[in-house]
């Protein structure tokens, strides 16, 4: 059963969005997030929502997956909204004892909330349509130009790849050790927090020792396969932009244009 774990929240699919170059998706997500800050009118969020729904529709990802990410930030979302609502000075709409809500506070709170929601849904779309390993490739390519100033692009990508490769292996191993300890009477479930933490020690120690041994063997195996770092290394799957990537960039710039138009000229 542990064999079937998948890492990240990738939802397999064949849609256009799935097939976009990972660099395109990462860059466009960044542009989308930054451009959200251009919006100062409620109508601007309608444009953003239209854009986002368009992408969700194209990706064929069920809406409920895209909003799942919001659950994790519910508390932050709530705090942001409350602070903005009660702490912004301006025209008072309602007051009770020391609490008062201003018109400015209310709009600020709504905008901040919307911004956060769009931000999370936007980034979720990236991780929902891009397998972690492809994402790693994209990050490596995007960071490559920064090598001269000391960004270890290849090394970072290799570390992420190896982590992704070994997470399932280590999970399986944890499961095995846990069962072995339970067979000898170890108890991982009952007792208070302290007791439970203590019962994890005989689990973590062998796990760590094995992990170090694995790392050592893997390093030797990689060297034996002529690994000498990123220098002079080629790739089986080279990333290449295709027409659909250019269309995606174009559409995103249209969206940013609309945001600016909305902010300074209309509505």
């Amino acid at each position: 059963m542990l064999r079937d774990i998948t890492i990240g929240q990738y939802v397999p699919g064949e849609s256009v969005i799935h097939r976009l170059d990972p660099r395109t998706k990462i860059l466009l997500t960044l542009i989308f997030i930054i451009s959200l800050f251009i919006i100062v009118k409620f109508s601007g969020y309608i444009i953003a929502a239209a854009f986002l729904f368009g992408v969700i529709y194209l990706s064929r990802i069920p809406i409920k997956y895209t909003v799942k990410g919001l659950r994790g930030i519910l508390i932050i979302l709530l705090i942001t909204i409350l602070i903005n609502m009660f702490m912004t000075p301006g025209r008072v709409l309602w007051s009770f004892l020391f609490l008062r809500i201003t018109y400015e506070g209310l709009t600020q709170a709504v905008f901040m909330g919307l911004r956060l929601v769009f931000l999370i849904v936007g980034t979720s779309l990236l991780t929902l349509t891009t397998p972690p390993i492809i994402m790693t490739d994209g990050i490596e390519y995007l960071l490559k130009p920064f090598r001269p100033i000391g960004v270890p692009a290849h090394e970072l990508a290799m570390m992420m790849t190896i982590a992704l490769r070994f997470i399932p292996t280590l999970m399986e191993e944890t499961d095995k050790i846990m069962k072995a300890q339970m067979a000898r009477g170890a108890d991982f479930e009952s007792g208070n927090v302290l007791n439970r933490a203590r019962s994890m020690v005989p689990l973590l120690v062998p796990l760590f020792i094995n992990a170090f041994r694995r790392a050592d063997e893997l390093a030797i195996a990689m060297e034996a396969r002529c690994y000498k770092g990123g220098e002079g290394r080629t790739r089986l799957h080279e990333l290449k932009y295709s027409p659909k990537d250019y269309i995606a960039f174009f559409m995103t710039f249209v969206m940013v244009g609309l945001f600016i138009w909305n902010r300074y000229w209309v509505w």
Binding site: I133, T161, I162, L164, R165, T169, R213, R214, E217, L218, I220, A221, M222, R225
Partner: peptide, 12 residues
């Protein structure tokens, strides 16, 4: 090497 797990590098 002996341990097949510890010599495979990639996820595919």
């Amino acid at each position: 090497f002996q341990n097949p797990d510890n010599q495979l590098v990639a996820t595919i």
